[in-house]
Each structure stands twice: as C-alpha cells, then as structure tokens.
C-alpha cells in the first residue's frame, strides 16, 4: 500500500520555505521510510519527523507565527488546509483527483483572497508549492474555468519571496470566453 503512494513533499520544498522565511542555511534533513518522510535533526531533543511538523517548526524558528494564523479559527483553518495539502493534493495522482481538488478550491476561493480568509499564511505558501506542477500544465481554458484558483495562485506566486526558482505561470487577465461562467 505504502509503495503505491507518491513520495510525500520533501526536503526541496523545505529548503524553499527556509529561504522564504529568511532562515540561515544549516538545518540538516534526512529522510525516513519508503515515502521518504523528511526528518530534521535538532540540537536538543529528538529529531522532528514529517513535512508539516517541520514546516511549522521553521515558521516558529523564523518568529513568523502569524503565518500559522492569529485567532483560534485561523489556526484551525491553516491546519485544515495543510492537512488537505498532504492528504489530497499529495495523495491524489489521477486526472480526476486533480479535477476535484481544483473544483473544491475554486468554490472555496470565490469569496476569499487567501486560504485562511483575509491573511496570507503557511497554507497559501505550501498549497502554492504543492499545486505548482498542476497549474503549470493547465490549458488556458482550464485556467479560466478555475478562475478563483488562478487568481489566488497568481497572487501567491507574486508574493515577495515565494516563487523563487519555480517557473512563473502565466494567467490571462481578460476573459477568454465572455459567455463562460
């Protein structure tokens, strides 16, 4: 069963996050098990295991706790989308899975600028990294169909420091098909 799953998000992405957070290089990562779960060796105590655990730890290390949400509700919503990212985005691999994810997100983002609502959080950053390979492959028509995702994605990729070496995904700002909904 574990062998069939895609490898989870890895060390590369944590390096992106480190850089975005302005942390000095120096964290040492290892991987563990068949899914190559990242492990961070810490100076004191046992190592941290798992992508989301380490990501949250890095945010705290950078003293940017607001990226984890400010109110209890925001924190919960950030957690919700981090979980969604790991279980659904990373877990799914078929065309159909991707379609459902984009549809879900498109509905969700209709009335929100960020995943946690009004503020930019770790959820936006990691969802952006997680969806980059999907968005790169979308046709112009699909980008128009998932308009709210496109708007959100474009905003996040322009957020200072987020995109780094990843390719810039182009979005057309005027409507392609004026009759489309």
């Amino acid at each position: 069963m574990a062998a069939a799953a895609r490898p989870g998000p890895g060390v590369d992405e944590l390096a992106l996050l480190e850089k975005l957070l302005g942390l000095p290089k120096g964290n040492k990562y290892g991987v563990q098990g068949e899914r190559k779960v990242p492990v961070l060796q810490t100076n004191n105590g046992p190592g941290l295991t798992g992508f989301m655990t380490i990501a949250a730890h890095l945010v705290k290390q950078a003293k940017k706790d607001q990226l984890l949400g400010s109110t209890a509700e925001e924190k919960a919503v950030v957690q919700q989308w981090l979980e969604y990212r790991v279980t659904r985005v990373d877990g799914g691999s078929s065309k159909e899975d991707t379609r459902i994810i984009l549809k879900d997100l498109n509905i969700y983002l209709e009335d929100k600028v960020y995943l946690a609502g009004n503020i930019f959080t770790l959820a936006d950053i990691l969802m952006y990294y997680g969806l980059h390979h999907v968005m790169v492959d979308l046709t112009v028509q699909e980008k128009e169909k998932y308009l709210n995702v496109s708007r959100w994605f474009n905003h996040i990729q322009h957020y200072p420091g987020v995109r780094q070496h990843l390719s810039n995904v182009i979005f057309i700002k005027n409507r392609l098909y004026t009759n489309a909904h």
Partner: peptide, 11 residues
C-alpha cells in the same frame, strides 16, 4: 477584481 486580487498589481 474577478482576475485581480488587488486593484493594481499583486499588492
């Protein structure tokens, strides 16, 4: 604002 997060640019 359909395709724009903010009125001008991305901030």
């Amino acid at each position: 604002l359909r395709t724009q997060t903010f009125l001008v640019g991305e901030r």
